[in-house]
Amino acid sequence: MTGKTHLIGGLALSATVAQFTSYDPLALMVSGAVGGLLPDICHSGSKIGRRFPLLSKTVNTLFGHRTFTHSLLFLCIVGFLMNKFVPVEAITIGLLSGMISHFVLDSFTRNGIKFLYPLNITVRFPFTVRTGGSIEKLLGSALAILVVYFIIEMIWIDY
């Protein structure tokens, strides 16, 4: 999936979480957007990889792409560190929501993800989507509409 789709996926899932919790929606959605991009730190050509090139190259050299940073182990480590060092629970929940959306979206690609890393088991859906293809664009558009809907609903409820 492209960075745009991961960004909107992180926003969409965190906006959904905001609908069903009392967490600050802005904190959830901003951290959800970051979480939607974070797992691709292992890819130097990704949006986040270009932002942190040295870290990206180091992570890629150590683990490769779509392994450790796309795993339940990474999700748990990030969750533990966030709970330990970030006092705002909404930021932690948003970041983890964004990461989960990233994992789900990449599971729709032909290469899938190594969700159970370090086990060498590829997780992917039975039907896949070509990165940057028309189905991905359609999915990204649907997720964007969902985000806009939730934002309008949040604003409407406040008035």
Rank of each mutant, 00 (worst) to 15 (best):
T2A: 07
T2E: 05
T5H: 07
H6M: 10
H6F: 09
I8R: 06
G9E: 09
L11I: 08
S14I: 01
T16C: 08
V17T: 07
Q19Y: 07
D24L: 04
L26M: 08
A27C: 05
L28M: 10
L28W: 03
M29R: 00
V30W: 00
V30N: 00
S31T: 06
A33Y: 00
G35K: 01
G36V: 07
L38A: 08
L38K: 05
C42P: 04
G45F: 14
I48V: 15
I48C: 04
R51G: 08
R51Q: 10
S56V: 08
K57P: 00
T58F: 13
T58D: 10
V59C: 09
N60L: 12
N60S: 14
G64A: 12
H65M: 11
T67Q: 11
F68L: 14
T69L: 13
L73I: 14
F74Q: 12
L75P: 00
L75N: 01
I77Y: 06
I77S: 05
F80D: 02
L81P: 06
L81F: 04
M82T: 02
N83W: 12
K84L: 15
V86K: 04
V86E: 09
P87R: 06
V88H: 03
A90W: 00
T92Q: 05
T92F: 00
L95M: 13
S97G: 12
S97C: 13
I100G: 02
I100M: 15
H102M: 07
F103L: 04
V104L: 13
D106N: 09
S107R: 02
T109W: 04
N111F: 08
N111S: 11
G112M: 04
I113Y: 08
F115Q: 07
L116P: 07
L116K: 10
L116C: 15
L119E: 12
T122Q: 03
V123Q: 02
T131W: 10
G133I: 08
E136H: 12
A142G: 12
A144L: 14
A144S: 15
I145K: 07
L146W: 15
L146G: 08
F150Q: 10
F150N: 12
M154H: 11
W156V: 13
W156I: 15
W156M: 14
